Computed example of a mutant assay.
Amino acid sequence: MINQDGKIIRDENAKLSVLNRGFAYGDSVFETIRVISGKIMFWEDHYFRLMASMRIMRMEIPSNFSPEFLEEEIKAIIEANGLENSPARIRFAVYRQHGGYYTPATREVGYVVTAEPMEDSFYVLNDDAYEIELFKDHYVNSGLLSTIKSNNRAVNVLGSIYARENSYANCLILNEKKSVVEALNGNIFLVKGKVIKTPPISDGAINGIIRKQLLNILKKTEDYTLEEASISPFELQKADELFLTNVAQGIQPISKYRKKEFKNDVAKVLLSKLNVHARLG
């Protein structure tokens, strides 16, 4: 079942025009949201990021798009799919209504909400082999557009194909300054001694929800020094630990980059703190 503009319909009955601007021009933004037994994880952060993304894309935010209204829309699709007592992954996509070419005929929007089941209620550490490489065929540009989740994900798609063709679990993306920005599906953190480093949003990194949660957690601990600073590719092999973050997986340790193999001790500790944070949030 799918929630399309507030109507719950069967998957096979859901239709978008071939002139839909999300399809035609990538004129769409989205949020990937984790729901556990009907509770939306980090909902306030998701809501404000969605509103910020719509403003950056100069979309008209409907007057009824309150946190309460959108929360009810998400819960409606959860119930329609029988996932009230299960972990679920939600995709909330907002697109500008069709009309016009590059210049939109309207700034009004429509939306689609989908739900699918997930295996685990809370984040579980995946300590399987997880080798990565740099994806250097294309770069992301630093700036606001790179920080939002839009339908313009060509670099991520091509990088994912490259990773699969070369038997890598993931790849890291560079910006036009050749700094490491993020992974194909999440933010990157580097651990060296007692310093934990992640690229700043100004480098073009996605303004990740789990990234934000970890920054808040790290700011309250005296065990590590947090740095939001550009990461050079040369730093990767000198690190003690590398890990990725996103809403679906939480924290994913990296086991190998080129000839360097990494530990996952810090990732384990932070994952435990993240699960506690999620339960209390």
Score class of each variant (00 low, 15 high):
residue 2 I to K: 09
residue 2 I to C: 08
residue 4 Q to A: 03
residue 5 D to H: 15
residue 5 D to E: 15
residue 8 I to D: 12
residue 8 I to E: 10
residue 11 D to E: 09
residue 12 E to G: 05
residue 13 N to L: 13
residue 16 L to D: 01
residue 16 L to Y: 12
residue 17 S to H: 06
residue 25 Y to R: 08
residue 26 G to H: 08
residue 28 S to A: 15
residue 29 V to C: 13
residue 30 F to L: 00
residue 30 F to W: 00
residue 30 F to T: 04
residue 32 T to S: 12
residue 34 R to V: 03
residue 34 R to L: 10
residue 36 I to C: 01
residue 40 I to V: 15
residue 41 M to Y: 11
residue 42 F to G: 01
residue 43 W to E: 07
residue 43 W to F: 10
residue 44 E to N: 00
residue 44 E to T: 00
residue 45 D to P: 03
residue 47 Y to L: 05
residue 47 Y to K: 03
residue 49 R to I: 11
residue 49 R to W: 02
residue 51 M to W: 00
residue 54 M to C: 11
residue 56 I to Y: 04
residue 59 M to H: 05
residue 67 P to E: 07
residue 68 E to Y: 00
residue 68 E to I: 07
residue 69 F to I: 01
residue 70 L to N: 07
residue 77 I to E: 00
residue 77 I to T: 07
residue 78 I to Q: 08
residue 82 G to T: 15
residue 84 E to W: 13
residue 86 S to R: 15
residue 86 S to Y: 14
residue 89 R to E: 05
residue 89 R to N: 07
residue 90 I to N: 05
residue 91 R to D: 00
residue 91 R to I: 09
residue 92 F to R: 05
residue 94 V to D: 02
residue 94 V to I: 15
residue 94 V to K: 01
residue 96 R to C: 11
residue 97 Q to V: 01
residue 98 H to D: 12
residue 99 G to M: 05
residue 99 G to W: 01
residue 100 G to T: 10
residue 103 T to D: 11
residue 104 P to W: 02
residue 108 E to N: 15
residue 119 E to L: 09
residue 119 E to I: 06
residue 120 D to P: 06
residue 122 F to W: 14
residue 122 F to Q: 09
residue 124 V to E: 15
residue 130 Y to E: 00
residue 130 Y to I: 08
residue 132 I to E: 06
residue 135 F to Y: 15
residue 137 D to V: 02
residue 138 H to F: 10
residue 140 V to Q: 06
residue 141 N to Q: 06
residue 142 S to R: 13
residue 143 G to F: 02
residue 144 L to M: 11
residue 145 L to G: 12
residue 147 T to D: 10
residue 148 I to D: 12
residue 151 N to F: 13
residue 152 N to E: 14
residue 155 V to Y: 05
residue 162 Y to C: 09
residue 165 E to S: 15
residue 176 E to Q: 12
residue 176 E to F: 08
residue 180 V to K: 07
residue 180 V to A: 10
residue 181 V to L: 07
residue 189 F to P: 10
residue 194 K to H: 12
residue 194 K to S: 12
residue 196 I to R: 04
residue 199 P to L: 07
residue 200 P to Q: 13
residue 201 I to D: 00
residue 204 G to P: 06
residue 204 G to E: 00
residue 205 A to N: 03
residue 205 A to E: 04
residue 207 N to R: 04
residue 208 G to V: 13
residue 209 I to T: 13
residue 211 R to C: 00
residue 214 L to C: 07
residue 218 L to G: 05
residue 220 K to N: 13
residue 222 E to N: 04
residue 235 E to V: 08
residue 240 D to K: 02
residue 240 D to S: 11
residue 243 F to L: 15
residue 243 F to R: 12
residue 245 T to L: 11
residue 248 A to M: 02
residue 249 Q to H: 04
residue 250 G to Y: 14
residue 251 I to N: 10
residue 252 Q to I: 10
residue 254 I to Q: 04
residue 256 K to D: 04
residue 257 Y to I: 02
residue 259 K to H: 13
residue 261 E to D: 07
residue 261 E to K: 06
residue 261 E to W: 06
residue 274 L to Y: 04
residue 274 L to S: 09
residue 276 V to E: 14
